[in-house]
């Protein structure tokens, strides 16, 4: 009972103190708002960069041209061996007849050329188009395929793929480091602002100590106050995240970025926004609480 009474009083005291020390509370809240907006932007950016790199990775395919004059059985045997390769994700077979027909449909020039071929003549080759599970192992997979029977040519844009993989890895690492650094800076900035506000209340803490208040009971209202300030400071960044990201998503789609580059599309707002909201409230509340308790602790040593 006594414990709950103390908690109840601490909540009341912390709310009172937020309003009675309004300018100080505002300083902490403003600092939280600014840094959490940065964190939100950082997370959204890094998440989208990851998403886009994954999409590009998924677009990477291996094209296999089979030897001319392979029989149906040989094609089936090759398809079976391809399926047995662990890294192969999907396999699509295109017969040379299909390719011929598709080409003829694609443009008149091709159609004319194909018309000039003799009846039954088809210099094209049967082919497979593969996607892989892990792009990083695409080199090894291509080599394995090259060594298979009946395979004439394997193409996957080696040099471009290798460069892309390197760039993707770098971008991922940079965004990760950026977000981590932003979160650290946020923690530092918020807890420093709280430290300053609590420094101005050190007399209050001293009096509490002198009249026999236990350290726990002194810290509790500050802990709750830090929590409230963190949550209040997270509200505006959360709103900006919800509406800002939705706007960015829709705006970029209408501008045509999505159509312009088929592979690039932002993560849908519903997939990411809730997750960012949780992170923002979490960082706000935790940093608020620990920041203020750490600051109070300094004034509790005798």
């Amino acid at each position: 009972m006594r414990f709950f009474r103390i908690i109840g009083r601490s909540i009341k005291a912390s709310l009172k103190s937020i309003f009675r020390n309004f300018s100080l509370s505002m300083a902490s809240i403003t600092c939280t708002i600014i840094t959490l907006i940065l964190v939100s932007i950082g997370i959204l950016l890094s998440y989208n960069v990851n998403h886009i790199t994954k999409e590009i990775e998924n677009e990477l395919t291996i094209v296999i041209l089979l030897e001319k004059n392979v029989t149906t059985e040989e094609i089936q045997a090759t398809e079976k061996s391809l399926k047995d390769i662990a890294n192969v994700d999907t396999i699509k077979y295109n017969s040379k007849e299909e390719i011929k027909n598709n080409l003829a449909k694609e443009s008149e020039t091709y159609a004319k050329i194909i018309e000039s071929w003799e009846e039954g003549e088809n210099p094209l080759q049967d082919s497979f188009v593969l996607t892989v599970k892990n792009v990083k192992e695409i080199n090894e997979t291509a080599t394995t395929i090259k060594n298979m029977d009946h395979v004439a040519v394997v193409k996957y844009g080696e040099s471009m793929v290798n460069e892309l993989i390197k760039i993707f890895d770098m971008v991922k690492n940079i965004t990760l480091v950026l977000v981590a650094a932003l979160i650290l800076v946020t923690a530092f900035l918020i807890s420093n602002t709280i430290k300053i506000t609590i420094f101005s209340r050190r007399n209050e803490i001293e009096i509490m100590r002198l009249v026999g208040t236990s350290n726990f009971v002194i810290k509790l209202p500050f802990l709750i106050e830090g929590f409230f300030i963190g949550i209040m400071g997270a509200i505006i960044p959360v709103l900006i995240t919800i509406f800002g990201y939705d706007y960015a998503y829709n705006h970029l789609s209408t501008v045509g970025l999505n159509n312009l580059l088929n592979v690039i599309s932002l993560v849908k707002p519903t997939e990411i926004v809730y997750y960012v909201i949780l992170i923002l409230f979490g960082i706000g509340a935790l940093v608020g609480m620990f920041g203020s308790v750490r600051a109070v602790k300094k004034h509790l040593t005798i």
Binding site: R20, N203, E204, E206, I207, R209, L210, V211, G212, T213, S214, N215, L300, T301, I302
Partner: peptide, 24 residues
């Protein structure tokens, strides 16, 4: 110990030259 000092202070009353009242 530091974190037990409050137990002593609850048995005392202290009057200060500068009153040390909580202004708010």
């Amino acid at each position: 110990r530091n974190n037990k000092v409050y137990k002593l202070r609850r048995k005392l009353g202290i009057v200060f030259q500068d009153f040390k009242l909580l202004p708010k």
